[in-house]
Design a protein around this nucleic acid. Structure first.
Lengths: 175, 175
DNA sequence: AAATTAATTTAACACTGTTCATATATTTAA
DNA sequence: TTAAATATATGAACAGTGTTAAATTAATTT
């Protein structure tokens, strides 16, 4: 029952393929048949490694969070205060999802296998937050506002610009 | 080309049917065939009155906003200060969507005919806000936080309770 | 090399949104 | 009232979806 290396590799093929499709063509293009074709397998093979598509999507979400974490990491090292660092990291967090709007939708539009793994708010707390601040009320408020902002900005291809997002984000700064 | 009364009635049949299905069985159950069956017509008839399903969904969204507006209206009359009234209305706004989680998803999950009509944030400003406050920065922050809260609360059937939501909402109060 | 196990494929099923030719009402003209 | 013209409703058909399971191929063990 232990997940072998080969099995893990196979899973990664599909996760990788799905992520590329979502990034490039959007969520609605990430069908079982499309994913399998890009991975070089038949669509039925997916179900030997994943319970269903939401299960696969959940793995994609996990992979995306890792990538987003690398994107943010060390991005605020030169900032002096915790508030400055948090704002800087939140900026890159938002820019990451502006660059790939479909990735944000993955966490909320698709039923990413019911409540598996950490949510986007947990990730935000651990990655953007800092010791002793991540659990504070102002930071919780900030988390919700940033996600609300992304929710409105990324919906229905509003084609939001980097500049607009940066402007709106600045309004949400912790005081 | 003027939309006749009969045509308007027909549209309402489908809008009504779709709304009932979404309320009762969720978004994924609101298919063309299900909607048409509940309305008493064949699925093809829908396309004589709506460009496509997102177009129909957009009309449902509009209908829901009206209903939500009635739900909220006069709910904060006894409160003294604008802040108290806004908080009270926001509470009912949130409770409305907690009662029918699928309705919130309608605005963000489904592609409610690209950018037609006012968004949920516009509605929130006009219905929950008050003269001179709805355009203020704190209220904008509050709007985003409330929607962020709903985004997390209503996703993946987290089965959030009224009490939990009221507790979280209280934390977001304007100060 | 033969038998056994594992993995992959693909046909099939029940859905989906949408289109369009056909059938049915309804309205207008004679 | 009947006949022609118009408007509306229907459902078959198409291309797509997720998922399952039987059949096929590949890998492993005897």
């Amino acid at each position: 029952m232990a997940p072998s290396i080969k099995e893990e590799r196979m899973k990664d093929f599909f996760i990788q393929a799905a992520e590329e499709i979502i990034r490039g063509e959007g969520l609605q293009a990430a069908s079982a048949r499309n994913i399998a074709e890009r991975a070089g397998y038949s669509y039925g093979t997916i179900y030997n490694y994943f319970k269903d598509l939401p299960d696969l999507y959940a793995h994609v979400a996990h992979s995306i969070l890792k990538d987003c974490g690398n994107f943010i990491k060390d991005q605020a090292d030169e900032k002096e205060t915790p508030e400055e660092r948090i704002y800087e990291r939140a900026k890159w967090f938002a820019l990451y999802f502006i660059q790939y709007p479909a990735l944000f939708g993955l966490f909320f539009e698709r039923a990413v296998s019911s409540a598996s793994g950490p949510g986007l708010d947990d990730f935000f707390r651990d990655t953007v937050g800092e010791e002793g601040i991540g659990e504070s009320l102002p930071f919780r408020r900030y988390t919700l506002a940033v996600h609300g902002l992304l929710l409105f900005a990324l919906n229905r291809g509003k084609n939001i610009s980097y500049g607009d997002m940066l402007h709106d984000l600045a309004l949400l700064r912790l005081t």
